[in-house]
């Protein structure tokens, strides 16, 4: 099976290039991460990429696979068009090969104050929450910060420092929707203006690529509705 992988090491390369690799034997059920590890272990130790859990929960190995962002560890190689084009996540600076500098992405995440804010004194036991209230967090809390969504979003590409992007906005929604959180008003106010939230044009690339099946566009629209309600 043939792979064409984006290579760039700023120490030695003037510009990026694509390198071809071939694996003769492909085990049934092999995931793309397995293929990359095989390449690294047996062909080229210098090929660099992030990875950890290997089962789609840690969010380390987001990359662009045949033009679409995804996690290498849960992308079966069977069925991928050859040579498989593997590039770093688009829209973020490349550190080396498939490794991007994610600082802007994390900065946007931190910007939405992604933590529960409760002003009242805490009870001695848990804060109560009904199953229905808890259900509202489903589809929001499961995000693994892999950045597949934000780096597939044209609005984020154009204004990564002004538009928060789908991942950060999903987190904003996760706390706005949490019945325990007492900072809803501040959270909505912080998203005012033409960029932070409203640069989302519902292109829905984020929904298409999210490896966890989440729907940031819906979360963003839910926030927008709340903003409109608040303005009235």
């Amino acid at each position: 099976m043939k792979f064409s992988v984006y290579r760039y090491n700023p120490e030695v390369d003037k510009k990026p290039y694509m390198q071809e690799y071939e694996l003769r034997e492909i085990q049934p059920g092999l995931m793309l991460l397995g293929a990359l590890l095989q390449i690294k272990d047996t062909i080229d130790e210098t090929l660099s990429f992030r990875r950890s859990c290997g089962e789609g929960v840690c969010g380390s190995d987001g990359m662009n696979i045949n033009g679409i962002n995804g996690l290498a560890c849960i992308t079966p190689v069977a069925g991928l068009k050859q040579p498989v084009q593997i590039r770093p996540l688009p829209g973020l600076p490349v550190v080396r090969d498939l490794i991007v500098d994610m600082e802007q992405f994390y900065q946007n995440y931190r910007d939405v104050k992604p933590y529960l804010i409760v002003d009242d004194p805490m009870p001695e036991v848990e804060l109560p929450q009904t199953p229905e209230q808890r259900d509202r967090l489903d589809g929001l809390y499961e995000c693994i910060l892999c950045a597949c969504c934000s780096t597939q979003c044209p609005s984020f590409w154009w204004n990564p420092d002004k538009y928060l992007g789908p991942a950060a906005l999903l987190q904003a929604s996760r706390f706005i929707e949490d019945s325990r959180d007492q900072a809803t008003e501040d959270r909505l106010a912080a998203l005012e203006g033409p960029f932070k939230l409203f640069r989302c044009h519902s292109i829905m690339n984020c929904v298409q690529v999210c490896p966890k099946g989440l729907n940031p566009t819906k979360a963003i629209n839910d926030i927008k509705k709340k903003m409109v309600k608040r303005a009235l």
């Binding site: 848990e126 929450q129 009904t130 199953p131 808890r134 706390f175 325990r180 959180d181």
Partner: peptide, 14 residues
């Protein structure tokens, strides 16, 4: 839970 962990819930909210 106070830090925000989204635990699943019983009908009585615990």
């Amino acid at each position: 839970e106070h830090f925000g962990v989204p635990f699943s819930r019983m009908d009585n909210g615990t």
